[in-house]
């Protein structure tokens, strides 16, 4: 699950997941929700492989891929199939389509106080976005 939390200048989202896979998927859904957009037709599928030195950097890289797709390809992804995930690597299949009804742009994903914490129920983090 994700919830938007208060930030004076930009956007912040608190994300929880029972495991890292759910955390990454919910983070992507949370970011999509901020933009207000949805994918139109035709749908498009692509695979993504990422590596990073730690889980937080991997999370930022994952979300940055979606920012880039939105801005350069004009595409929103709303189906995230995680094929493999460790704290330093990710393989996923993304399905989306041309962005429709976007009224807010997420321009960048920050590292501000970014830490993925283990909780009794799984994982939790808060992500601040530049808008």
């Amino acid at each position: 699950m994700f919830e938007e939390i208060e930030h004076t200048a930009d956007y912040a989202v608190r994300v929880r997941g029972t495991d890292l896979r759910e955390l990454f998927v919910e983070a992507a859904r949370g970011m999509n929700a901020l933009t207000g957009g949805r994918p139109g037709q035709p749908s498009r599928c692509r695979e993504l492989v990422l590596e990073a030195p730690d889980a937080e950097t991997l999370l930022v890289s994952w979300l940055e891929e979606l920012v880039f797709l939105m801005e350069v390809e004009g595409e929103i992804v709303d189906q995230f199939e995680i094929l493999g995930l460790t704290p330093t690597s990710l393989k996923a299949r993304l399905t989306g389509g041309p962005a429709v009804d976007v009224d807010k742009a997420v321009k960048a994903v920050t590292f501000h106080e970014l830490a993925i914490r283990e909780t009794g129920d799984g994982y939790e983090t808060t992500i601040v976005f530049d808008v």
Binding site: P53, T57, V60, F68, K107, A108, V109, T110, F111, L114
Partner: peptide
């Protein structure tokens, strides 16, 4: 935005290389 994103990420390694301790990764 991409320049900033690229270098904030790259500098995560630079702070380790130069032994810089910071209260916030940003």
């Amino acid at each position: 935005h991409q320049v900033a994103s690229d270098y904030v990420k790259r500098f995560q390694g630079a702070v380790r290389k130069y032994g810089i301790r910071l209260p916030d990764r940003e």
